[in-house]
Computed example of a mutant assay.
Amino acid sequence: MDIGNSNTTMGLFGDRNLLGHWRISTNLEQTADELGFLVTGLIKNAKMDNVRVDGISISSVVPSVMYAVEEMAQTYLGQSPLVVGPGIRTGLVIKYDNPKEAGSDRIANAVAAIESYGAPVIIVDFGTATTFTVVDEHRQYLGGVIAPGVKISAEALFRRASKLPHIDLVRPASVIGRNTVSSMQSGLVYGFAGQVDGIVRRIIAEVGSPYRVVATGGLARVVSPHSETIVDVDPFLTLKGLQLIWERNRGRHEYNKM
């Protein structure tokens, strides 16, 4: 489970094979029972209700929901979850000034990107915020960039400019918009593609060597085709990283105490 500010993404793995995946809204008011009913219902609806859950791995940037999530995991899935944070084995060397500040979703992204694409690597995650995570050839998590996300920027336009309509975030027919909607779509899609390329090029200039660029997140497939620096798009990168982290901590004493 990857719990973000806007959405929670869940994946069910058999070994390293992703058998099913779901995206739900992150609800700060949801109880453990409500969440348990929803999660088990999604698994049942996918005709996988006969699957035995051996473990649960969680990244979260929303601390206030964790009590309900952990209670749900124990009550409805029969497992105490592994929550990615300090003391968890990841295979990374965290070079943040304060390693505890490194986002658990970004750590999961880095673990999966190294496994699938090698290092050095830059991961661009199009979520509520657009984050850039930089991992060098020694698997050192160097840090990165956090910028407002595509949806945050779109919502700011809607709120601040009363005449601008809500729009679908899709690529317009041309960069030059011929109406208000296509002009806004162009600004968001091509604007964020340009932002990605500008930041990636500055990162590469700063580190002094080329890095592979991998994109993930809900809007990665919308923006990535218009970027000149993104090489790979992997929409399930975070979930894959959580599965790998669970593997690396399976059976450890610290995990068993959770």
Rank of each mutant, 00 (worst) to 15 (best):
D197L: 00
I199C: 02
I199L: 11
V200H: 13
V200S: 10
V200N: 12
R201F: 07
R201P: 08
R202F: 02
R202A: 04
R202I: 00
R202D: 10
R202Y: 01
R202G: 03
R202P: 01
R202N: 06
I203N: 00
I204N: 04
I204K: 00
I204F: 05
A205M: 03
A205F: 06
A205D: 15
E206A: 03
V207Q: 11
V207C: 10
V207L: 13
V207K: 12
V207D: 10
G208W: 07
G208C: 02
S209C: 13
Y211V: 02
Y211F: 15
V213G: 02
V213Q: 07
V213F: 15
A215M: 03
A215T: 00
T216C: 13
G217M: 10
G217T: 02
G218S: 06
L219F: 05
L219V: 04
L219W: 04
L219R: 05
R221I: 01
R221F: 00
V222H: 14
V223W: 14
V223R: 12
S224P: 15
P225R: 13
P225E: 12
H226G: 11
H226S: 15
S227V: 05
S227C: 15
S227W: 15
T229E: 15
I230Q: 02
D232Y: 15
D234Y: 09
P235E: 03
P235W: 02
P235G: 06
F236T: 10
L237D: 04
T238S: 06
L239C: 09
L239G: 06
K240T: 03
G241M: 07
G241T: 08
L242A: 07
L244Y: 08
L244A: 03
